[in-house]
Amino acid sequence: MADLIAWVLVVAIAAYACAGGTDYGAGFWDLLAGGAERGKPVRRLIDHAMAPVWEVNNVWLIFVFIVMWTGFPTMFQAVFEAMWLPLALAAVGLVFRGAGFALRKPARRLARRRIAGVLFALASLVTPFFLGAVLGGIASGRVAVGTPASADAWANPTSVLTGLLAIASTAFLGAVFLSSDARRFGADDLVSYFRLRALLAFAAVVVLALIALPVTHGDARYVWEGLTTGWGLTMVILAALCGLATVLLLWRGSPHWSRWTAVGSVALTVGAWGMAQGPYLLPTSLTVTEAAGAAPTLNWLGIVTLIAIVLVGPALVVLYRLDTLGQLEPLTDADTRSAPAPGDDL
């Protein structure tokens, strides 16, 4: 049961990396959209694309933490003791990001919308970076039971590269999804706009991944060996193929199907990391079995997870499906033509 719950944790992390990562990527492109007038069409598209699902996407992060502290309390304690600062910064980013996104649209004064927009965009960089840095510190074996908090646990080469990869990957996901959103909303000029940015983000992911190869070879040797052999290598290759397929689909003007391949690329990468790290939760000091909670707790956690899949899963599928079809909040011609919003002249 402990191994099953560990894989539930990996799947939940993959789901958050894809769903929440798409939102972080949208925030990244919001930051680079330009001034108030030039960036208005981009930001309107981001608002309409994110509004129906951004709160739901954060449910995956909550589920990750629930599985961690319930199923693997020893790991949970060790990670939060050693990594409390980057996790706190990520949490602050989550708060400011949500507040900025929620408050900028109803704000009537341009100055207030700008402040809220900056909070949303900057926090969309801060949160994925520090979450990635935490994963990098864990993968490099710098976290063990009793490890005190220190900068080395998360400000090391593997952590920095993982944080940058998290930003680049979310930018890639966000651009792919927004290219598809632009087409279904009829904003044809933004289709090519985000297609180009998706290709640039993918190039950044490739460059960072190549830089990470020699760094992780020396700094996170156990995980590196897992990623270059067996099932870990197989999943890395599949993730790379999905990434290349995404590039090809975007190049040929098929943004709808590119969503699936982009999600597959990121999800397979997370799965490869889970494969490479096994049987450890904290390489190479704490195995899944050693970190697992009591057997009755794990059994109940498995039952609750199954109930959640049965009760919540269909609702999430319907929500994502309706959002993909553009039936939740249609974008009007006035929006895509950069029509002035209420309060623009204030």
Rank of each mutant, 00 (worst) to 15 (best):
D3E: 15
I5D: 03
L9C: 00
V10D: 01
A15K: 00
A19R: 02
G21L: 08
G21V: 11
G25M: 04
G25D: 07
L32I: 08
L32C: 07
A36R: 13
R44C: 02
L45A: 06
M50L: 14
A51L: 06
P52G: 03
E55R: 12
E55C: 02
N57A: 04
N58H: 15
V59I: 12
M68A: 10
F72C: 02
T74E: 03
Q77S: 14
A82Q: 05
V92H: 00
G93Q: 08
G93D: 10
L94T: 13
F96N: 13
A99G: 13
F101E: 03
P106W: 11
A107E: 15
A107K: 11
R108S: 09
A111V: 15
R113L: 03
R113N: 06
A116F: 15
G117P: 01
V118Q: 09
L119Y: 10
F120A: 08
A121M: 02
L122C: 04
A123N: 09
A123C: 13
A123P: 03
L125D: 02
F130G: 03
L131A: 05
G132N: 07
L135R: 00
I138V: 06
R142K: 13
A144E: 11
A144W: 03
V145L: 00
T147G: 01
A149R: 00
S150M: 05
A151T: 14
D152S: 11
W154D: 00
T158Q: 06
V160C: 02
L164A: 09
L164C: 07
S169F: 08
A171N: 04
G174D: 08
A175H: 09
F177Y: 15
D181T: 12
D189P: 10
Y193K: 05
F194T: 08
R195N: 07
L200E: 07
L200C: 01
A204V: 15
V206H: 01
D219S: 10
D219W: 01
G226N: 05
L227W: 12
W231H: 04
W231K: 06
M235P: 00
A239S: 15
A240L: 12
L241W: 10
G243Q: 10
T246C: 09
T246P: 05
L250Q: 13
G253N: 02
P255V: 08
H256K: 14
H256W: 11
W257H: 13
T261H: 03
L268F: 08
G271I: 04
A272K: 13
W273T: 02
W273R: 03
G274Q: 07
G278A: 15
G278D: 10
P279C: 06
Y280A: 01
T284W: 02
L286Q: 13
T287M: 03
T289Y: 11
A291F: 13
A292V: 04
P296I: 03
N299C: 00
I303G: 01
T305Y: 09
V310C: 04
P314K: 01
V318Q: 11
Y320L: 14
R321W: 15
T324R: 12
G326T: 12
G326Q: 06
L328H: 05
E329S: 09
D333N: 13
A334I: 06
S338Y: 00
P342Y: 10
